[in-house]
Simulated assay, not measured.
Amino acid sequence: MKLSAATFVARDVDALAGFYGAALGLAETVDDSPRYRELEGGGVRVGFAFTGAYELLGLQDDAEVSGLRSFLTFEVPEADMAEAVAQAVGQGAALVKAPYRTHFGALLAVLRDPEGNAFRLVGGAA
């Protein structure tokens, strides 16, 4: 088994998909705007679905759940961390925590996308 995709329910599918494409250089693989768009990066797809997806999936009773419940982590070459953070912020991300060394020794930055979803950038080998 492998994770094939993670999907955000978005208030504005086009804007959020556009943000991740521009901020992180993810390539678009599906464009069913305004209902769904999908980007790919490193073998994992990131989807952006319209709010009507809750009803389509039979999840409308839970659609009022709010708050920070998950986040995605994107690996960038450690040498490019400052540039990657600046690119994301330049596209509308909010920097929550500047790059720092975790207790595991990884270089990590925490940001929020334009709809408030948290995501992380982690430094990897070049």
Rank of each mutant, 00 (worst) to 15 (best):
G18W: 09
R37M: 08
G90Y: 05
L26H: 11
N117S: 01
T29G: 08
T102M: 05
L24G: 01
L39D: 07
D31R: 11
D12C: 07
T29S: 10
E38D: 06
E28I: 03
A126F: 11
G18L: 09
V122L: 12
V122E: 13
Q87I: 13
F71E: 13
G25H: 06
R37V: 00
A15Q: 11
S66H: 14
T7H: 00
L121G: 11
E64G: 15
E55Y: 06
V110W: 11
V122D: 06
V13C: 05
G58C: 03
A27W: 08
F48E: 02
G90W: 04
G42I: 03
V96W: 03
G123F: 06
L26E: 02
S70G: 09
P99T: 06
F8Y: 08
T29M: 12
V85M: 04
F74C: 01
Y20A: 01
S70N: 12
R45M: 00
A22V: 05
F119A: 09
L3K: 02
F48C: 00
V44N: 04
E28M: 12
F119H: 01
L16C: 01
G47A: 02
A63S: 14
G25L: 07
D31L: 06
P34G: 08
V89Y: 07
T7M: 02
D12H: 06
R112T: 13
A23E: 07
V13W: 02
G21W: 06
A125F: 09
F104H: 15
L24F: 06
A6H: 07
G116T: 03
F74P: 01
G43Q: 01
A79F: 05
A5F: 00
A84N: 06
D12Q: 04
A23W: 09
T51V: 15
P34D: 07
E40K: 11
G18M: 03
M81D: 10
A22I: 05
E55D: 15
V65T: 14
V96F: 07
R45G: 02
T29V: 13
H103C: 13
A49Q: 04
L68N: 11
G124L: 02
V85K: 05
L59M: 14
G105W: 06
F119R: 08
L57V: 06
A94G: 12
L107A: 15
E83F: 03
S70R: 08
F19H: 07
V65I: 14
A93T: 08
D12T: 00
G92P: 04
P99F: 02
A93L: 05
G43C: 02
D12Y: 01
D12I: 03
A94D: 13
D32Q: 13
G18Q: 10
L3N: 08
L16F: 07
A126T: 11
V110M: 14
Q60W: 07
A23Q: 09
E115P: 04
A82Y: 09
E40S: 12
G21S: 10
L95N: 04
L107S: 15
D62H: 12
G116L: 00
V65N: 12
V96H: 10
A94T: 15
A27D: 14
S66M: 12
F19W: 01
L56K: 14
Q87S: 15
R37F: 03
F104R: 15
V9P: 04
D14R: 14
A22D: 12
D31E: 07
